[in-house]
Design a binder for these strands. Structure first.
Length: 368
DNA sequence: GAATCGTGGCT
DNA sequence: TAGCCAAGATT
């Protein structure tokens, strides 16, 4: 027996064992149909877009806000872009929101309000890639699609003891997932695998003794479960530096805001005017208007997916009659909630509005 | 294949 | 503190 390789997991054992576990352990989630309920494709789609690279706990409040305000795809398609971006603010990956709008309008306008019921049809829509197409097809339309998200990648890598590092292993893992997908209730099967990944087969310290699949798990048999999946090494994040100008208007305390370009980083979102963000050192000061700018002693730090950002915040108080420069807008504090401010800009405003004092800066900075 | 694209929670 | 990672898509 020594040196014998454990057998691969068998679909006729794995899927039923998983289904029994799921019947007793399924998480109750706001977007999930209760047993016996017919899933609403709109809610399934909306939740899947929101859940891309985003935790269940973070999505919850956003899902409630969206479905409360826009209960169906027609309502969402008819909403203003700015209102949707504002409701999305803080959730991150803002291209998702821009694609959400485009997708809703295609479905409402060209497809009679009905989402395609096939994986291929769904995959043609903006913001719907391989994962989301499979997930919506399986969960909303009971199609036997092979769903592969980060959870299922991990479960498959362990079940099959797949040592090829991600992302190269993805096609292999997808084939494994497809081989295990039953024709009966494939949506429940996919959600069961995701719940298993979230509750038992966790990234660190998997709870193998409680796993319904432990008897079929090659990774566990080989003592490798906790080390899988392997991943290609990640690139180090550089640090970029920038300046942000918080102008405060006398009287109502309004602040000056601008709008970012429609695509790219934080595309279409509101911003505090500032410099470019560069790795080359401190950018040249170019205030949006002439004023007595004072540098705050505390910088704002924020980390994006591929770089760290360190912003120096400058603040100035200006007269109530000061006109807004071209492309910018005075926004009173109580109106800030109506603007699509990403988290990094909320941090800048918090620093600029709350923090006392502020350091005098060289005079050449004071006039643009 | 490699880069780009947010944020928050946990270790 | 610093890294890891989450129901990925797009270019």
């Amino acid at each position: 027996m020594t040196g014998m390789s454990p057998p691969p997991p068998r679909p006729d054992r794995v899927a039923p064992a998983l289904a029994r576990w799921y019947a007793a352990n399924a998480r109750v989630l706001p977007w999930r149909a209760r047993p016996g309920e017919v899933p609403d494709p709109y809610r399934v789609w909306l939740s899947e877009i929101m859940l891309q690279q985003t935790t269940v706990a973070t999505v919850g409040p956003y899902f409630h806000a969206f479905t409360g305000r826009w209960p169906d795809v027609h309502a969402l398609a008819g909403a203003d872009d700015q209102a949707i971006l504002t409701a999305w603010a803080g959730l991150g990956y803002y291209a998702r929101a821009r694609n959400l709008i485009r997708c809703a309008r295609v479905v409402a306008g060209e497809l009679g309000g009905r989402f395609p019921d096939s994986e291929a049809g769904l995959a043609k829509l903006p913001g719907i890639g391989p994962y989301t197409a499979a997930a919506v097809a399986a969960i909303a339309f009971d199609r036997p699609a092979a769903v592969l998200d980060g959870n299922i990648e991990r479960v498959m890598a362990r079940l099959f003891a797949e040592e090829t590092p991600l992302p190269a292993a993805k096609p292999l893992l997808r084939r494994h997932a497809a081989a295990l997908t039953p024709t009966v209730r494939p949506g429940d099967h996919a959600q069961a695998l995701m719940d298993l990944g979230a509750l038992i087969c966790t990234p660190r310290r998997p709870d193998c003794p409680r796993c319904p699949l432990v008897g079929d798990c090659r990774g566990h048999a080989l003592g490798l479960a906790a080390e899988l999946p392997r991943r290609a090494p990640k690139k180090a994040k550089p640090t970029r530096l920038g300046l942000a100008y918080v102008a405060i208007r006398a009287g109502d305390g309004a602040v000056l805001l601008g709008r970012r370009p429609p695509s790219g980083l934080l595309g279409g979102m509101a911003e505090v005017p500032g410099s470019d963000w560069t790795e080359q050192g401190a950018p040249a000061p170019r205030p949006p208007l002439s004023a007595d700018w004072r540098r705050l002693s505390r910088t704002v730090r924020h980390t994006f997916t591929h770089f760290h950002l360190e912003l120096t915040v400058l603040r100035a108080s200006v007269a109530a009659a000061t006109p807004a420069p071209a492309g910018l807008l005075w926004v009173p504090p109580q109106a800030l909630a109506g603007h699509p401010l990403p988290t990094v800009m909320r941090k800048v405003l918090a620093a600029g509005l709350d923090s006392p004092g502020g350091k005098r800066i060289p005079s050449r900075v004071r006039n643009s």
